[in-house]
Amino acid sequence: MTVLQLIFYAFSAVAIFSGLMVVGSSNPVRGALFLVLSFFCMAGLWILLQAEFLALILVLVYVGAVMTLFLFVVMMLSVNRVSVQEGFVRYLPVCALIVLMIVGLMIMVVGPERFGLTQIPMPAAFPADYSNMVSLGEVLYTDYVFPFEVAAVILLTAIIAAISLTHRQSKKHKSQNISKQIAVKAGDRLRIVKMPSEPKINPTGGQ
């Protein structure tokens, strides 16, 4: 086993473990932290694939920005821990069955006999001056300009959706309408209610 393989297995094992813990941990903050860990491991795997630019972006954007924000939200929401675990036992048999079926299928198909080096030969090593960023930049605005633009539109849509869903009509905003205040009449504010007078009570307290 080479060193590279050792690193690969270490990162993969931690990634799978933290992925499971994201779902399994009852504390949402811990879950978010495990998600950070799994992103980090994925970044490690991408570096092994020589996609160092994407790996760094993953760490910077997801770990650095998105997950930090996410952690803030989770902490502020203070999710009820009991409610998270409700229905776990009830749905376990069905879920376990589905998971077993999918994992079984994957084990049957995804393996060295189909994805091994004989089926898919090792790609040629890159030259020393190879830059991940340059090759990405070359195709991003040329071959992939159409998907790139559509992705940009998706982001725009997400912004519109997020703003329109969180934006409330400014009901909280209270202001004085001075002309209305001046023009007010007594009749608008004061209502005189006619009531029958109460029966007279004997001031001496006798019945």
């Binding site: 539109v153 998706i154 849509t157 997400a158 519109i160 959706a161 329109s164 869903l165």
Partner: peptide, 9 residues
């Protein structure tokens, strides 16, 4: 995704 995201919102 563009379709679905708009529909969810």
């Amino acid at each position: 995704e563009l379709l679905s995201l708009s529909l969810y919102a």
